[in-house]
Structure formats: C-alpha cells, structure tokens
C-alpha cells in the first residue's frame, strides 16, 4: 500500500551549504531526494513513513562531469543520460557507460542519478559493479567537512553504508588511464528494459605480454552488497594468463559465492550463470590474446 503523503515533508535548499546545514539537524528523518526513481518505488510500498525529504535535485554543486589530466569527477547528481552522453565516460570507462544504458528505461535514465544509485545501496544496482572495477572514490560531505572514501569500503551490509549522520555523497572520482584492453559488462535482467538484475557481471582485465597486470571482477545481485572479488584479484594479478587460471577462478567463485533465492531468481541460477559468464569471457580473452 502506498504511503500516506500527509506524513511526508519536503524541503528544498538553495545551495549545497544550506543542504548540509539542514542535514546536520539529525532529529529530522532526512532522506535526500535526487531523481526520486527509487524513492517513488519505496513510497508505493509504504516504506517511507514520516520522511523529511531534502530536495537536492537542483543543487548546481553536485551536477556535471569534470575532467582533469588524471581524473574524472562526477557530481552525485549526474544522471544516467548524462553518463551516456559523456565522451570521456564512453571512451575511458565503458563499463560505466554500458551500465547506465541498461538501467531502467529512457525516462528513468533522465531522472536517476549515480549518487542515488550508490546510496540506495541495492545489491542489484547496475552502476556499482562498474564503479568497483574502476576503484572509484566517493567524496562524503557534511557541515563539518569532507572526506574521501574508497567505494569498495562504502557498502557495509544489506542496505547499510558508511555515510555518517549528516553526510551526503557529493562527488564520485574515477582515475584516468584505465583504458583496459578487456572490458565486459553483462547484465542478466528479468527483461530487456525496466529490469532489475538477476546477475550483474563486470570484468576488467589488463594483460601485458600474457601477464595479468590488473584484474577486477565485480558482481551484483550475488550478495547483500555489490561485491568486488578481491580473492580473484589477489590470485590473478602478476600471473600468466592460462587455462589453468580460468579453472582456478571457477573454483574460487564456486567456493565463495552463495547467492540467495528471492522473488526474482534462484541462488542456484545466479551462481551457475556467473560461473558460465566467467568461463565464457575468460576464454574469450584467452582467445583474444592469440593463445
């Protein structure tokens, strides 16, 4: 059942500093409202009783994509559509570019933001695995100051995260020079659009003379949070690419993954498909290396 709207309030700050001042009042039940694409769904399921929405949609400080020599910084309000029309994202961060194109449908992409996608903390969210592969960093701001955290440390459990009371994600930083040879983003959704993922598979591999220099595998819908497979990174980096390594990866995944059954899919399916995709894309890389 839908929330009774009479219990809800919405405040629209003029600028970021006012927004952070307001957030500092921790007696309020603040929920920052950016594109609202996730909040509207929660409203319909009666999950937001008594919420004080902070309408940050118009905050200019959180908009736009800035490029410098060594990094690209996205304002937290960057929409999926803006990601889709950014040249630098398209050419240097293809995993993120693809993820944005597979989220919801056009209307959602116009309204949904990357900051919102992160803070909503859904294990099934489309962009987090890409951000994990790129070792993204988040700028968390409050009326007290700012701090950078590694995105990998942000999600602490199912729908919980490292934001302190009064803090807001304001920017997302990606380091440039990550144009890797092999990038694979594969979303297995319930349908081709307006779909929540059943499996998100995001793989980035840099190989130099058959030696793996960088290896990232991030997965969505496989655990309580989006996950980066550290164990594979540790096992694969600085190793020679070979079929034995693919086997090793499969056995690590088989051991470490234990996704759950839910309304959208089964744990058995999620795991099996992840293993299938891993084998498929790793063999593709292997073939691509000419071996």
């Amino acid at each position: 059942m839908r929330n009774s709207t009479s219990t809800l309030s919405m405040t629209t700050p003029e600028d970021l500093s006012e927004a952070l001042q307001l957030l500092a009042d921790t007696d309020k039940k603040w929920i920052p409202f950016a594109g609202g694409t996730d909040l509207m769904v929660q409203l319909e399921s009666n999950l937001l009783d008594g919420a004080d929405f902070l309408n940050i949609w118009g905050l200019f400080e959180l908009q736009g994509i800035e490029e410098s020599d060594c990094e690209v910084v996205l304002g937290a309000l960057t929409t999926y559509s803006e990601i889709r029309s950014s040249e630098v994202i398209k050419s240097e961060f293809p995993l993120l570019y693809q993820a944005a194109g597979l989220t919801g449908a056009k209307a959602i992409q116009n309204r949904g933001t990357i900051g919102g996608n992160i803070v909503n903390a859904s294990p099934a969210a489309d962009t987090p695995p890409a951000l994990l592969c790129y070792d993204a960093e988040l700028l968390l701001s409050s009326s007290e100051g700012q701090r950078w955290v590694d995105y990998q440390d942000f999600h602490t459990g199912y729908k919980t995260h490292a934001l302190a009371p009064g803090e807001l994600i304001t920017h997302i930083k990606l380091r440039r020079g990550q144009e890797k040879k092999f990038n694979f983003y594969h979303k297995v959704g319930t349908r081709n659009a307006q779909a929540i993922s059943k499996v998100l598979f995001c793989l980035m591999v840099q190989v130099n003379n058959s030696r793996i220099e960088k290896f990232r595998l991030a997965l969505g819908s496989m655990a309580a949070t989006p996950i980066l497979m550290d164990s594979l990174r540790d096992a694969f980096e600085e190793q020679e690419f070979g079929s034995d390594l693919i086997e090793k990866g499969l056995s690590i995944l088989n051991e470490e993954l234990s996704p759950i059954d839910d309304i959208r899919s089964t744990g058995a399916y999620r795991k099996k498909v992840t293993l299938n995709l891993f084998k498929y894309y790793m063999e593709k890389i292997y073939v691509g290396l000419g071996q």
């Binding site: 449908a105 319930t190 349908r191 307006q194 779909a195």
Partner: peptide, 27 residues
C-alpha cells in the same frame, strides 16, 4: 517465457510490475 505468479500460501507475492515480468516493447 516470463509471466510467473509467485505464490505463497495462496497469495501472489510478486504483485508489482517490477517483479511480475510482463514484456516491454524492447522484448
């Protein structure tokens, strides 16, 4: 191929368009 009613004790559990998968024009 997609429209599955998930039942629990006689009640439809996936009573949302997000989880009861009707195809879109993209499918």
């Amino acid at each position: 191929l997609s429209e599955k009613v998930v039942w629990e004790e006689g009640l439809m559990k996936n009573s949302q368009m997000t989880n009861y998968i009707m195809h879109t024009s993209a499918d």
